[in-house]
Simulated assay, not measured.
Amino acid sequence: MKVRPVTHHVILGKGQIGSTVAESLARRGDTVRVLSRSGGTDTDSITHHKVDARDRDALLAACRGADVIYNCANPGGYHQWEAEWPPMAEALLAAAEANDAGLVMTGNLYVYAETDRHMTERSALAATTRKGRLRVEMWEEAVARHRAGRLRVTEARASDFFGPGTTQNAMLGERVMRPLLAGGNVQLLGDVDAPHSFTYIPDVANALIRLADDDRSWGRAWHIPTAPAVSQRDMVDGICEIAGRSPARITRMPWWLIINVAGLFQPHLRGLAETRHQWDSPYVMESTEFTETFGDVPTPFDEALGETVEWWRRRIAEQR
């Protein structure tokens, strides 16, 4: 195994993934530069820069001197992907090439076909949705440049996020965690009893850093260590048990209401129509290749759910 010493990190995005990666790198003594549209407050180990990643020249300047660049950003909503991802992706590739930096991309499972079989890194990139095809095109362009010797790239693919810091656009976000911890009931999407893979935020951050550090990662995609699939009902029941409350009543939110009605006021919700299959059917990923290669294992489900509940309790208490 050849391990490349990495000390200068540039992270695009300061959401739950980017922030967790930055904090982990800072704790081990590396220098970290975080790029985002709004900037942020510097610390001793982390500097924040206000950058629009669609601006190629601005991103090139902000990434100068990087050993590795992490793409932990996403456009603001599904409805913005087709307009914003292409210039962002091109600017990131240019920045990696210009600095001879490794590029670690945070990916998802949209690249695969709609299926109820277990998804692995060997599954065909046969997405039929617009968002899925866009992610396929981004990856294929990046890996083509890798094969041509122009840059080093890898992609870490995860299923739906949960964990500390996940507040919006997630199954265990505001619309579920807050009412559950207040003793209320919840509405969920799709088949609440279908097995579904959920990837824990700290495991995502650890995987990104592992891939950046190890030369065995380059030139291919990896599935982030993810615990065995559970249902949405299992998630809700687990939260109730940890919180010491009675089981919550779960009702199913109709798709027509989300897409046709709520989507009028929140445009990003209209994009959920393309991902409906992920919630109406089993949606299961395997991550054994990562574990067998690098040795990392997913955080046990009960531990991850407990830490998520504790984070939400602190958040709610601080907001009172």
Rank of each mutant, 00 (worst) to 15 (best):
R4L: 13
R4S: 12
V10Y: 05
G13I: 02
G18R: 08
V34N: 06
R37A: 12
R37W: 10
D44Q: 14
S45L: 00
I46K: 00
T47Y: 01
T47A: 12
H48A: 01
V51A: 06
V51C: 03
D52Q: 12
A53N: 09
L59Q: 04
A61D: 15
A62P: 06
A62Q: 00
R64K: 15
G65Y: 10
N71V: 00
N74M: 10
Y78V: 07
A83E: 15
P86F: 07
P87V: 03
L93G: 07
E97M: 05
N99I: 01
N99V: 02
L103A: 02
L103P: 05
G107L: 08
L109I: 13
A113D: 14
T115R: 14
T115E: 12
H118C: 13
M119I: 15
E121G: 15
A124E: 15
A127E: 05
T128L: 10
T129V: 12
V143R: 05
G149W: 02
S159F: 13
F161P: 00
F161D: 04
P164L: 05
G165A: 01
T167G: 00
Q168P: 06
N169A: 14
A170Y: 01
M171V: 15
R178K: 15
P179F: 02
P179N: 09
L180F: 03
L181Y: 07
L181P: 00
A182W: 04
L189N: 01
D193Y: 09
H196Y: 03
D203G: 04
D213G: 01
D215Y: 05
S217C: 05
W218N: 01
H223M: 11
D234C: 07
G238V: 01
G244C: 11
R245V: 14
R249I: 11
R249V: 12
T251M: 14
W256A: 14
A262G: 13
L264K: 14
F265D: 02
Q266V: 15
R270W: 06
G271M: 08
H277L: 06
D280H: 09
F290W: 06
F294M: 10
D296S: 12
P298R: 04
T299P: 01
L305Y: 02
T308D: 04
W312D: 02
R313T: 04
I316M: 15
E318D: 14
